[in-house]
Design a binder for these strands. Sequence first.
DNA 1: CCTCCGTATTTTGGATCCAATATTGAAAAT
DNA 2: ATTTTCAATATTGGATCCAAAATACGGAGG
Lengths: 222, 222
Amino acid sequence: MSPDEARRRPPTAQQFVLGELRRAITTGRLRPGTPIRQDALAEELQVSRVPLREALKTLEGEGLVTYKAHKGYCVATLSLDDLREVYRIRELLEEEAVRRAVDRLTDADLDRLEAAQAEVEQAAAAGDVLAMATANRLFHMTLFECAGMPRLARLIRTLWDTTDAYRSMYYGDAGNRERVIKEHRATLDALRRRAADEAVATLDVHRAHAVAELESLLTPAT
Amino acid sequence: MSPDEARRRPPTAQQFVLGELRRAITTGRLRPGTPIRQDALAEELQVSRVPLREALKTLEGEGLVTYKAHKGYCVATLSLDDLREVYRIRELLEEEAVRRAVDRLTDADLDRLEAAQAEVEQAAAAGDVLAMATANRLFHMTLFECAGMPRLARLIRTLWDTTDAYRSMYYGDAGNRERVIKEHRATLDALRRRAADEAVATLDVHRAHAVAELESLLTPAT
DNA sequence: CCTCCGTATTTTGGATCCAATATTGAAAAT
DNA sequence: ATTTTCAATATTGGATCCAAAATACGGAGG
């Protein structure tokens, strides 16, 4: 019998709904601002409203949806100020995560990062925007989790979630895809040499460009 | 008619339960590690299990309770590592908040801080541990909210929540209460002079002492 | 034509009921 | 005596039903 057989249990309806909704929101299939009609969504997902509502409460805590009593849930919209705030907080937290990670990086960790980077490049070559976003995320989360600070990693993950719906636009541009690959290579290189300052700097550049791009994407619309 | 009449609506059962539970956990009345029996709690609070479960979901998102599918909720327990991690993250976020706050502090803000500090001193004089914790929290949150970064403030608030159950022990000691008052005064003084570095430093001292104290409280037990 | 008000409908909030899973205890086999 | 199995019980997960609030609609009045 496998060691972690207990883990492979059929997911509860609630977990299923949570995953579906998160994916729908972070990929932009459920656009920011859309009000959530519980009855319709529940029927679409083939569950009752109870697990749906609990999933929505979780998403509310993560900032993916907003809630008003007696009015219901909406897919969260980010103002420009919100966007800048989220990226600033990410900057603070990710710097800490990277510095700690550099102190603890094992060869196995580096291998996993290489593998993630390979996935990124593969997705980029195929022009698969969604796969690119997923792999990019995997790359960063792998790095952050090396810090050995699970709560910090969780916070960063939820911050990524809140901007994912907007970030996926970013990879539509081939130039941006190329740029991301180069930046990842620079980060990996710095990590291999245990150059913490440099690694932090590469990520700052990464973020700065992303936020600038997103600002320009957001400003004309809405 | 009052301008914000709409706000003063009777709270939903869910909001009521959320408040009650949060208070119970952060004040330590519901001790860390206690498993939560939904049926019993629901009856005690005079509501059904549905709003209770939704409240628990938000508390899970805030890290106040843990959840395992088919096993239920427990009041979260913090390991020493968790405690250090939470305080480290707080350090990162609060430094940012204070620096931004210093740049934007108005005289009205300072007045509100003075008022909060007066409450702290009053509670300390009366030896009211709970009121002291509340007022101390008000003082800090007032400061952090001056940064004009609502998401940052929210993050910091939830981090405070996760350690509140442990921190309330801290004020049991009269020496600690005296110390906190002095530290607040130092912070206020620095803020009045717009000395950001100094203000950050006073808060770092504040936290460092608290975490040391909590570590010694946590180490022998459990 | 527009505004205001009252009613009808929709949508959310909450309670109860049922199903699925986990836990407990006792009996039986080694 | 210890361990294993299996049944009984307790607890969580989910579905349905009902109540309360909000929204939409239509008519009366200006």
